[in-house]
Design a protein around this nucleic acid. Structure first.
Length: 291
DNA sequence: ATGCAGGAGAAAT
DNA sequence: ATTTCTCCTGCA
C-alpha cells in the first residue's frame, strides 16, 4: 500500500502542527482532507498526495499517483521567503499584528491553480469550509478526472462549460450554481482569460475578475492572493473586518475604506498580514460564544 | 427551531 | 454612494 516512500518536501520547510493545519485547511485551500491531526490527503497539480508533518516539524509527502514531490515545492511556494516578507510588515508599530505573527510563525500563502481557486471561492459565499469542500468533492466526482483511490481532480472550466445551472444545483451549491454556469460560459468564450490574468498588474487583474458573474471584491482578492501570486491582495471577510475595526479603532469605516487602510498600513505584503490576522482571530473563540 | 454563515447583485434609498 | 433584500443549504 505504501510502495511509494515518503520524502521530505524540503529540509528547510518546517512548521508546527497548528500552522500545518492552518496552511492546508484554514481557508486558502479546500482540497485537503484531514485523516489524522498531522496527516492530510488531497489532489494537487493533478496528483493524489498524502502530506504529513513529523515530530521535528519536517513536512513529508508521497504521491499515490506517481507525482513528483517537487511539484509540492511549487505548491507551497517554497521559493518565497515568507519569514522575510513577514519581517517587512509593520509589526514593530502594530502589536496586534506582532501577536498574530508571533503565534503563527511559518504561515505561508499557497500557490494554487488559478482556475481551481476561482471555482472554490465561487462556492464560498456564506458557506463554511466543510460545506465548500463538500460541494467541490461532488463537482470533482461528477465532472473531474479520477486520480486514485476514489479521489478526483476538480473539473476544468472547460469541463463545466455547457452544464446547465439546474444540473449544478444538485451539488448543494444553491444560488451559486448560476455563478458557476455563468463563469464557465464566460471562460469558454474567452479562453485566454485565466492565463492572461497572472501577467496583468494587480488592479487590472482584480477588475477583470470582478467582471465575472458571482465575483465581487472579496472573492476576487481571494483568487488573486491564493491562486494568482498577488501578495498585495487583501480579502476582507467578516473576520478581517472585525479585526481591523476593533484592532485599529476603525469601527465606522466601510469595507472599501478598510481596504484602503490595509493597503497603506500593511504595504505590498498585505495578503500575508491578512493571513496572520485571520488565523489569529479565528483561533480565539468568537466574541459572543463561550466554551 | 430559526437565525445566520469567511458574499454578490440588484433594487431602493 | 451607501443600505437593504434575496438568493440555497445546512450548521449552531
Amino acid at each position: 500500500m505504501n510502495a511509494v516512500p515518503w520524502s521530505v518536501v524540503d529540509p528547510s520547510f518546517r512548521v508546527n502542527l497548528p500552522v500545518f493545519g492552518e496552511i492546508l485547511d484554514g481557508g486558502q485551500a479546500f482540497c485537503w482532507d484531514r485523516i489524522a491531526p498531522n496527516h492530510y490527503r488531497g489532489i494537487v497539480r493533478g496528483h493524489a498526495w498524502e502530506i504529513g508533518v513529523d515530530a521535528s516539524g519536517h513536512v513529508l509527502a508521497h504521491s499515490i499517483s506517481g507525482g513528483d514531490p517537487a511539484l509540492l515545492s511549487d505548491y507551497f511556494a517554497l521559493d518565497i521567503d515568507f519569514d522575510h516578507l513577514a519581517d517587512q510588515l509593520p509589526w514593530r508599530s502594530d502589536t496586534l499584528l506582532a501577536t498574530a505573527i508571533e503565534g503563527w510563525q511559518g504561515l505561508r500563502i499557497l500557490r494554487q491553480d488559478l482556475g481551481e481557486t476561482l471555482l472554490g471561492f465561487l462556492c464560498s459565499s456564506s458557506k463554511q469550509i466543510v460545506q465548500i469542500k463538500e460541494i467541490l468533492r461532488l463537482l470533482a466526482r461528477a465532472y473531474g478526472q479520477p486520480i486514485a483511490d476514489g479521489l478526483y481532480s476538480l473539473p476544468t472550466w472547460e469541463a463545466l462549460a455547457g452544464v446547465p445551472e439546474a444540473e449544478l444545483r444538485q451539488y448543494k451549491m444553491g444560488y451559486r450554481a448560476r455563478y458557476i454556469a455563468g463563469v464557465a460560459e464566460r471562460l469558454a468564450a474567452e479562453p485566454a482569460f485565466l492565463e492572461t490574468l497572472r501577467e496583468l498588474p494587480f488592479a487590472e487583474a482584480r477588475q477583470a475578475l470582478v467582471s465575472l458573474p458571482g465575483v465581487g471584491e472579496k472573492i476576487a482578492e481571494c483568487v488573486l492572493l491564493f491562486g494568482g501570486g498577488f501578495l498585495e491582495a487583501f480579502p476582507i471577510d467578516t473576520w478581517i473586518a472585525t479585526a481591523l475595526q476593533s484592532g485599529y479603532g476603525l469601527e465606522k469605516w466601510s469595507p472599501s475604506q478598510l481596504r484602503q487602510f490595509a493597503g497603506i498600513h500593511f504595504g505590498p505584503g498585505a495578503g500575508l498580514a491578512q493571513q496572520y490576522l485571520f488565523a489569529h482571530m479565528r483561533r480565539r473563540p468568537r466574541p459572543r460564544d463561550d466554551r
